[in-house]
């Protein structure tokens, strides 16, 4: 189902595999892990490793307010942009475009962007 080279159209999961305020970590080859979130019925994706320490954000908590809270020291990011919101996080995450096609969720790994 997943062509390893298909970085622009990388399969994540079925649309219904995630409930709201849930997320899933993916480990694409040759790049650090990414986390895909579902909030308010929409999907978002960012790098999975916190910029403050070596924490996996997929083990944190995401809220209706589009904020992911890191499980280690409670720093937060905006999942829509990757922007760091609360201390101790200061450096942004990269965020990635996500599309839903025919009930399947895909992330474009080639278009990861950190906010300016």
């Amino acid at each position: 189902m997943n062509d390893a080279n298909d970085r622009k159209h990388f399969y994540v999961c079925k649309e219904d595999d995630l409930a709201d305020n849930e997320m899933v970590r993916i480990d694409p080859p040759d790049q650090p892990p990414v986390v895909v979130y579902k909030v308010g019925g929409n999907f978002f994706a960012t790098d999975n490793t916190c910029t403050h320490g070596e924490a996996s954000l997929a083990e944190g908590e995401v809220d209706d307010d589009f904020i992911i809270e890191c499980p280690f020291h409670g720093g937060t990011f905006d999942i829509r942009t990757g922007e760091a919101v609360d201390f101790p996080c200061v450096l942004p995450l990269k965020s990635y475009p996500v599309t839903v096609e025919g009930g399947c969720v895909y992330v474009n790994l080639d278009e990861g962007k950190a906010p300016a």
């Binding site: 020291h73 201390f87 101790p88």
Partner: peptide
């Protein structure tokens, strides 16, 4: 215990 600045500035010790 997690910390950095000891001075109320960094938030690591929440």
């Amino acid at each position: 215990l997690a910390y950095e600045c000891n001075s109320g500035g960094c938030g690591t010790c929440k």
